[in-house]
Design a protein around this nucleic acid. Structure first.
Lengths: 146, 146
DNA sequence: TTCCTTGCAAACGATTTGCATTGGA
DNA sequence: TCCAATGCAAATCGTTTGCAAGGAA
């Protein structure tokens, strides 16, 4: 999906909810399209050189999450990072550096993904839990920290 | 491993570090041995009916993590839950409820675990990243929230 | 006695919210 | 025009820390 069509999809989604695709929201989305991993509010704030106030970034993140455009990344201590939802960005997993905390996306080929899917379904069928999604976090050291 | 031998292993580990296995630390460990998933500081605080001050719980968690007895579960927004480290509790994965945030342990059989291992190694070999551990989080709804 | 540990309260960092103002359809 | 969205500052929430008192070796 091109960056342009992504913005279009997102604008549609917001309009369906009677919300506007404002410049703050566009900035957040644009940064996340470019980024190679999820970003936190303060990382976005830095990315914008402080031009967008933190409170506006937080409010944008709330709205974009509520409308299913962004998803929180469950993988960092003490802060929340966000990324584009799967329908926009495709399924993938993460590397998480145990030293510097950086998070990087990683693509997974179909063969492996199918075996993970099978495993998730098999496991969930044994307990009272309805699986909706899964996330494989690979913890280790990134090139810089190794 | 029995609960008794767990406490013994843990006490040894602390003594090696010239630290004491105090009652606050014992309470935290005991609660995590019993729990069917990782717990946060405030969940532990509730568990103890407020008898152990939050600051002591936090300090216990820090010490127990530094000595490799507990591992943080990087999960839900804004708070950190802890669980016994793998050498005490064995490898497993998690169900995370997207509504209430509850986290529950789930065992994985060897066959499936081997395929996840293979996948992690394969993926990591393609990029400059040294894998140390991995966590498969299955997101969905728990019985109560379904 | 010595030093680790605790309890309380104040300090902190990330996130949220009240309110008056701005801005987009 | 009208109401969503913003900016600022104050409030909250989870977590950390300084310091004096308590407790185990």
């Amino acid at each position: 999906m091109t960056s342009k069509s992504l913005h279009g999809e997102i604008e549609n989604r917001l309009v369906e909810h009677e919300l506007r695709y404002t410049s703050a929201r566009k900035s957040v989305v644009a940064a996340l399209i470019t980024s190679d991993g999820p970003l936190s509010a303060s990382e976005l704030h830095d990315e914008f050189g402080g031009s967008v106030p933190l409170s506006s970034i937080y409010r944008s993140l709330v709205v974009l999450e509520e409308t299913g455009i962004l998803a929180p990344h469950l993988g960092t201590k003490g802060l929340t990072r966000y990324e584009l939802a799967e329908w926009l960005r495709g399924h993938h997993h993460h590397f998480v550096c145990i030293d510097c905390g950086a998070v990087e996306d990683v693509a997974v080929d179909d063969t492996h993904e199918r075996s993970v899917d099978a495993m998730v379904n098999e496991i969930s069928s044994r307990v009272a839990f309805t699986p909706i999604n899964h996330a494989l976090e690979i913890e280790g050291r990134c090139a810089r920290c190794a």
